[in-house]
């Protein structure tokens, strides 16, 4: 029946040729454009690259973080995207380096001042004390774990609150209420001998009550 409807009958050989040629043409036409548009996704997801170079940035000192409070520090990260790729420009003047500002919420685990800090207020700190402080330090991203709105510390309620959809976190960044699926992202951080806190644009999520680095993820911080 279908053969009768064909005005111009195809042989099997012709059909296969048309199929092969059609597939080839289709691939040639669509793959380059799709890959062109998906370039950032391929680089970030498949090749695990980031727009932000893995450099340490200073965000204040351990001696400045009080008990029962989360303090906000701003940090400028280098950002390499499109025309701000950081490559030398053709005219030799060098490309402008674009930066982006992120906020870091610094606090002590459960709001308790580490015992080391009750006896001293300046460096240099010995390695064992640095280890202890690093374990107790919360260096949290202010990017809400729900949809990325900037969260804030509220002194009255002793909570970290999100203004957009009511996400609530405790001082450790653990999720206590509202829509977020998990706690706030922690910056990968370390403490220098003089007490300076350094963060990298890399993040991990902790399980509730967990101490130390959890699962590494990308929060797409803005």
């Amino acid at each position: 029946m279908p053969e009768e409807l064909q005005k111009d009958p195809l042989t099997r050989r012709q059909f296969l040729w048309m199929g092969t040629l059609g597939t080839f043409t289709g691939v040639v036409l669509t793959v380059p454009s799709a890959v062109f548009v998906l370039d950032p996704a391929i680089k970030d997801v498949l090749l695990e690259r980031s727009d932000v170079p893995a450099e340490w940035k200073e965000v204040g000192s351990v001696f400045e973080i009080p008990a029962s409070e989360a303090v906000e520090h701003l940090v400028e990260f280098t950002q390499k995207q499109t025309y701000d790729a950081g490559e030398p420009a053709v005219n030799g003047t060098g490309a402008k380096v674009e930066t982006m500002t992120n906020a870091v919420l610094l606090s002590w685990r459960d709001g308790k001042l580490p015992s080391v800090l009750s006896t001293r207020d300046e460096g240099p700190l010995p390695k064992t004390q640095i280890k202890e402080l690093e374990r107790d330090l919360n260096a949290l991203s202010n990017h809400c774990a729900h949809l990325g709105c900037p969260v804030r510390w509220s002194s009255e309620t002793q909570d970290i609150l999100c203004p957009c959809h009511g996400g609530i976190y405790d001082i450790n960044g653990d999720h206590t209420g509202g829509p977020p699926a998990h706690g706030l992202w922690h910056y990968v951080s370390r403490i220098r001998e003089d007490g300076t806190i350094l963060v990298k644009h890399e993040f991990y999520v902790q399980q509730k009550g967990q101490i130390g680095p959890g699962v590494k993820t990308k929060p797409y911080v803005v």
Binding site: A41, V45, Q81, T82, Y83, E98
Partner: peptide
Amino acid sequence: EVGAMISSYTPLIGSWVITTLLGGDTAGPA
């Protein structure tokens, strides 16, 4: 940003969708 984050909850391809929408893993010129 919120819209892009919503897209990141797409099953299986969430990270592909958000990086395509942001033009990278952060929001910027791209």
